[in-house]
Design a protein around this nucleic acid. Structure first.
Lengths: 334, 334
DNA sequence: TTTTGAGAGCGAAACGTTTCGCGCTGGAGG
DNA sequence: CCTCCAGCGCGAAACGTTTCGCTCTCAAAA
């Protein structure tokens, strides 16, 4: 592997000049030519580590998500990765398997890798840690969920309106008893989605039966059990909305196992994966989060922060969701 | 940020001794204690870049996959990431969006990041590039598909037997006209899967109608179109196997749109995502690749190579698939 | 002709480690 | 009591860059 020294020797110029050339400084046209030639001939590549040692930059961004098997997160990551790589940043991706302890471990791991910035979905990482990062001028972007009491840039979906609109679609179809399957109570997204559910009931003056709001974890099994429970209540709902992809899968499995006829016996609205809507029968109604937009917004915001532009910090981007009502939703037949 | 120098100063020992301690060398118990104290007190963290500059290691592994939105790949990556992070390696993940040109770009990107090793799914990267990596003692592990004419470690599923077994399950149920939806002809996996299809026909002495073997790209749209085409043939098959996840989704969509009754009119076997089998009705038969095992095997092999153990190079691990026959497959009713 | 200053190149220090080779110490063996 | 040697610790060089502050050149301005 040749170094900047070799290039200097080959061209007869000094190391400093070569460095200048590499970093886009002013060099005589004449020298520019021979440097270029030398670099090609010697197959010189800049040593990122030596560079990083001087500049104190790794050109590496950490991405921390709950699961790499969750298409919602990986779609977002895919966009981020692409954008950042165009800006010259590598992305070290860690998945913490939905485990808050592991989240902390991986977060420290990333920090020890001297990342220049981080984009993360937090389940409850130690806020001190994030604060420490911010103090070190390492930009942090939160994805999907905000952290209470922490000043931090954040990009997420407009969860409240997402569930508001979905439940509204059910209410305007005369449903009165609408079930909602939520994530863990303490999570930000679950709370927001439940607020949308409540608000739309209030706005339309429909009574809420708390028994129809069930919290579980954001897993396939959770969704399965929650839907079964709702169905087995003496006074069962005529419609259900499910508030993430995994639980949607579980709910559909339960519907299949319980032989529930959709939408005659139960209307249902799922979450996140638009493909799913065409795979099951009848076509599933879906609330879709704008993953591409979330990813792009987060990536751009991070790059802005990396350039030192802390304009309007802390910024929160709350992006609009889309709702697709298909045949899995029908008018309530009293 | 404190450095090794600060620790040396604090303890009154030399830099060399601290370094020794950090890297697990022999240090007097007495000193061990005060160094530990100093490190904690000063919140010293090793600067990976300075270290990398000396050792010429980045402790970073590149992972290059066709798509981050493909659960097959991300499941594997998830395992790899977890294992490698335990070994202290960060993983820079790149997705090339199924685009061979972009593959090359991202590969160069990773190489320029001075990765210590790479695990990749190649669509057709320049083999010279891979060879160059190997020459530089950077271990390369190929995933999912081998590259013709390249000596390289490789971990993949036993594709031939996967399709052999699936088609066998159909043949033993009296199906004579069995469709298969394959990936692009030039890809290694598609070729192997088609060989399994052919061999089982030969072994059971069933005539092959070439019209029933359709190649498309590994996409949802491709699967949709392929199944529609098969169905619209004058002499349509009584059973179809689909050879990856995306195409399986597409095939199911087509079945829904064409109102094909499964399994009465058509038996079907899908690929890769076991969850899917319980989401659709009737439950879908599935060939499942052992993703966890693939990931683990690849990660372990890489670590072995990184340690300089080139035992039995080039190694090929061909891992057994599992097949789950569910109600989407029925006996052929002549 | 002299002065000025912009443009280009250069030398050297610094970034935070690892590692080589050497020197000191103290206990075991003769 | 002397000799050895193992075990520790130390100083210094080196890894490949960036960057500061300097000098030199040459053309334009005076």
């Amino acid at each position: 592997m040749s170094t900047i020294k070799d290039v200097a020797k080959y061209t007869g110029l000094s190391i400093a000049t070569i460095s200048k050339y590499i970093n886009g400084g002013n060099v005589l046209e004449e020298n520019r030519v021979i440097i270029k030639e030398a670099i090609e001939k010697l197959d010189y590549r800049r040593n990122e580590m030596a560079r990083g040692l001087k500049t104190n930059k790794t050109m590496t961004i950490g991405i921390l998500i709950p699961s790499l098997e969750n298409i919602f997160f990986t779609s977002i990551v895919s966009i981020i990765e692409d954008h950042l790589s165009k800006e010259g940043y590598g992305t070290i991706i860690c998945d913490f398997r939905e485990d808050a302890d592991l989240e902390q471990v991986k977060l420290e791991f990333l920090v020890n890798k001297n990342i220049d910035g981080i984009i993360m979905v937090s389940y409850g990482a130690d806020q001190k840690y994030i604060k420490a990062l911010q103090d070190k001028q390492v930009p942090v972007i939160l994805l999907d969920r905000m952290l209470r009491g922490l000043e931090c840039d954040c990009v997420l979906a407009d969860n409240l309106n997402a569930s508001y609109q979905a439940v509204e679609a059910l209410i305007t179809r005369q449903h009165k008893r609408i079930g909602i399957i939520l994530g863990p109570e303490e999570t930000y997204t679950a709370e927001e989605r439940s607020r949308g559910y409540i608000r739309v009931h209030e706005d339309y003056d429909v009574r809420i039966d708390n028994a129809l709001m069930v919290s579980t974890d954001y897993t396939v099994e959770g969704g399965y059990k929650a839907l079964s429970d709702l169905w087995n209540k003496p006074d069962r709902p005529s419609a259900v909305m499910v508030t993430n992809y995994e639980m949607t899968i579980g709910a559909i499995m339960a519907i299949n196992d319980l032989n529930i006829r959709v939408p005659d016996e139960l209307s249902i609205i799922g979450f996140d994966n638009i493909q799913m809507s065409k795979v099951v029968r009848p076509p599933l109604s879906i609330v879709e989060q704008p993953m591409k937009e979330i990813g792009m917004t987060a990536a751009k915001l991070l790059v802005k922060r990396l350039k030192g532009d802390y304009d309007s910090f802390p910024a929160t981007y709350r992006l609009k969701t889309n709702i697709y009502i298909k045949e899995s939703v029908a008018k309530f037949q009293g």
